[in-house]
Design a protein around this nucleic acid. Structure first.
Lengths: 120, 120
DNA sequence: CTCTTTATAAACCGATTGGTTGATTACAAG
DNA sequence: CTTGTAATCAACCAATCGGTTTATAAAGAG
């Protein structure tokens, strides 16, 4: 299966772009649960919840084990960590950008008599 | 415009669930850019890029200013921070869960010998 | 074996996505 | 005024998404 880095990010972010799936994540953060347990607080069918879990599974955000005819779902925090890592890269770069901007402004303030460079 | 908390998370995660939009985020982390500049490295049309920017804008991940007929796009790190905050909530809760799991395993070790299922 | 529980598979449907092309707005320069 | 540039709007299209209903598989319990 084609699970490139980009593809995994696609699936993971798309998986989180749905309130039902985010509620499932929240529920699973308190421990494993079966499809029936996950479906109970929702107004949708078990089949729909099963589909949501498949989406989360393909994003590798959750895993499943076997216990007789039950298939408990477990949260896998590793992928969540990968998402924060991606976001932080650009969030933090941006903050550094602000620091650089401060430096540039100080530089410009110090050279207020020289020729102004055009920052196009 | 209905911008509830859940709705904003929907839009933001959906916005990141596309490689083109993630590349736009990456580019904007190095400074503002116009639609034309953003569209250049892509094989898609300017209209498509414009749509991507609208998606990012509705997710409040970027803002726009006016400069004559140009509309430079700026990255807004605040929303990115909100996303990491949401993820970390459940990622970190899960780590605490592991600590609790250790306690449970110790408990089970003390009562080893019973059936794994229903103790008769 | 049959019956029940748990869960998935398959087919279908309306709404949304991501892309296109063509027309239009907004602004500045000649 | 006309021309050119930057960007959006509008209409359209194939593909995907989130949900349903129906049917099916898989694993105990009796």
């Amino acid at each position: 299966m084609n699970t490139s880095d980009d593809d995994l990010l696609d699936r993971a972010f798309l998986a989180l772009a749905d309130p039902a799936r985010r509620r499932i994540i929240a529920r699973l953060s308190r421990g494993p649960a079966t499809v029936n347990e996950l479906a109970e607080p929702f107004a949708i069918s078990k089949q729909a919840v099963s589909k949501h879990i498949q989406v989360l599974e393909q994003a590798q955000l959750v895993t499943r084990s076997r216990d007789a005819q039950r298939r408990p779902v477990h949260l896998d925090p590793a992928r969540l960590e990968a998402l924060t890592a991606w976001i932080d890269r650009y969030r933090l770069v941006r903050e550094e950008q602000f620091r650089n901007l401060d430096a540039v402004l100080s530089e410009q303030a110090a050279s207020r008599g020289r020729q102004t460079k055009d920052p196009s």
